[in-house]
Design a protein around this nucleic acid. Structure first.
Lengths: 345, 345
DNA sequence: CTGAAAGCGCTTACAG
DNA sequence: CTGAAAGCGCTTACAG
């Protein structure tokens, strides 16, 4: 019902609205008996705080959310940033402000320094793409102790306190890629090469695990000939792909768990293998678009990058405004994209 | 900036806040010269109205949005309703209320009666799944003349004024299905049967057109042997599928543009053809889930039903609150779903 | 520890 | 046609 406001509770309990606020929001300086009585009245009336009221009054002490991510030189993050900006605009009227720190690649010290910089700016919440390192976990616990909520996105971290994670399920992403291959192979013998980013990166390994598991369970005729590391370097990717194509002239498919798509694609195109070899990649940057158009890539498994930018901000704002708890994990979809998806944006 | 409020404009223009409100919101009873001057001041200051303020004050005259849809007995709408309910809950605090009318199947008179019922309830906005009929278009124009915004969802209408459409692009959905077939066929000869809902339904036809166009352009070896109507009836679908399988023992694929999936699947399973014949359907209800698990359906093309429920409410609320205009079309994604997508919800 | 007042930004009767 | 006041629901100094 529209009815139950702080004002009404105050009237019924026979106290002032300020006191009701103190009771409801666990503020200091209120008699515990009185507090209990007020909370009882609130419960009896079925009181739920109203977001419109909070949104307006919060403008007097505006919220600032810090964002830290390895987006420099990584086109995948273009869509993430779009989501981030859309959220920033959406919540601007409620006084929310974003402070964004970006880095190139994954360096623990840089990540820590940038997060400390954000903390020094007195952020009320943090969204970031964590490196899975003990020092980061420790920092997370420190931030939690300060009462600052943290949302991890795109990649999660094994240890350390955070409010929630928003991003792909890497295992499932690999399983989805395997599913595409399962359908395309149709029980025929097929040799697959896996090009991973780095065996040091948990997400890449999880994709491989998901991929392997589905293949092993369902496709006895498919064999994985090798797993090579591109280290997300295009030149290296080109070289190892070219070599692998030479060594395995009967190679039927390549699964790319990470970067190195441009290099691998170049090697494939030079061997005139587009359309002859199945190529499954991840994400959808201009590189994948071009290769899908040209038939170099058969399909790519995307991960809703826009949501990965938008949702963390939404969740943090809601939590800070309301105490509203987000789902512990928001798994973005593993979307299979093919050439026809590029028609008509 | 945080700075520019109605209060500030009032101070600078030397008038009361009520008068600024009158000028800004085109209300009656304000001197046109004064209005012009106030608008000038607002423009100079870069004034943008604040949503938090509006959200709170709008509670005094709460908004009601009407929804009308053919959801009875149609499992596809379960997810749409989930989106609708989520939006209802999200906007509840801002005083928004939903009034929902549902019908079974498509009957113009019923649709008109239900919409008139909603209008009689003094709704401020309407979201509905229109039947593409002149009488509905006429009603739409009548509603527009009353100043009530309308959002169509799931299916659009050719004529009649509406604020925007939220839903699938049927042509693109068919093209996506064809893309899946293009990949699975690999230039081998393949005979395809199309099972459509009804040739009377525009969306079904558009799916066929998109499908045909992609096949014709890219797959000279694929031929369409027939287009049959299931009329969304499972028994009929079973019968015609069984007949078609008998007539075309070399049939390689079936594309279902609409309902009748359960019946077709039954015929396929009875002929032991699961996994041997490619079957592409649309949407993801329990029927498609089961058949994907069993290998009766190869892939299904989904259309983000949750968004089709959520977004119309969001757009209508934003428009009514703010005058904010939504995109003229919000095309929900044609998502290719396969068995592996069902792992681990 | 508690209350009365003012304010976040916008709107709406009510006077004049 | 215009202004002054009150209100939407919540929070925050400021008194006491």
């Amino acid at each position: 019902m529209t009815g139950v406001s702080i004002k009404k509770i105050a009237e019924i309990a026979g106290v002032s609205r300020g006191t009701v606020d103190r009771a409801l929001n666990d503020r200091y300086g209120i008699d515990s008996q009185l507090k209990a009585r007020i909370l009882q009245v609130a419960a009896d009336l079925g009181y739920r705080s109203n977001r419109a009221g909070k949104m307006l009054s919060i403008r007097k002490s505006p919220l600032k959310i810090g964002v830290q991510m390895p987006s420099i030189g990584n086109d995948f993050f273009l869509e993430v940033v779009r989501g981030l900006n859309a959220a920033a605009q959406e919540y601007e009227d409620f006084g929310l402000t974003l402070s964004i720190q970006t880095m190139k690649g994954f360096d623990v010290d840089t990540q820590i320094a940038q997060i400390r910089d954000l903390l020094a700016q007195n952020i009320n919440g943090l969204a970031f793409v964590p490196i899975n390192h003990p020092a980061i976990s420790a920092l997370l616990d420190e931030i939690a102790a300060r009462g600052i909520p943290v949302v991890t996105f795109n990649t999660d971290i094994a240890a350390g306190k955070r409010l929630c994670y928003v991003g792909t399920d890497y295992w499932h992403s690999g399983a989805t890629a395997a599913g595409v291959l399962r359908l395309l192979a149709k029980n025929d013998p097929l040799k697959v090469l896996i090009l991973t980013g780095s065996v040091q990166v948990l997400g890449h390994n999880q994709r491989i695990t998901g991929f392997n598991q589905i293949i092993r369970q369902n496709c006895p005729a498919i064999s994985i000939v090798d797993v090579l590391e591109t280290l997300d370097d295009e030149d290296r990717s080109y070289t190892i792909t070219a070599q692998a194509l030479a060594i395995h002239p009967d190679l039927g498919a390549i699964y790319l768990t990470a970067g190195g798509v441009a290099g691998a694609g170049r090697a494939i195109a030079e061997c005139q293998l587009q359309g002859k070899i199945i190529v499954i990649s991840n994400d959808l940057t201009q590189t994948e678009r071009d290769y899908l158009e040209q038939g170099v890539i058969t399909a790519t498994v995307d991960q809703q990058p826009y949501e990965q930018g938008y949702k963390p901000i939404q969740y943090l704002f809601d939590y800070l405004l309301d105490g509203r708890l987000p789902p512990e994990q928001t798994i973005t979809h593993s979307e299979i994209l093919i050439r026809e998806h590029l028609i008509n944006p």
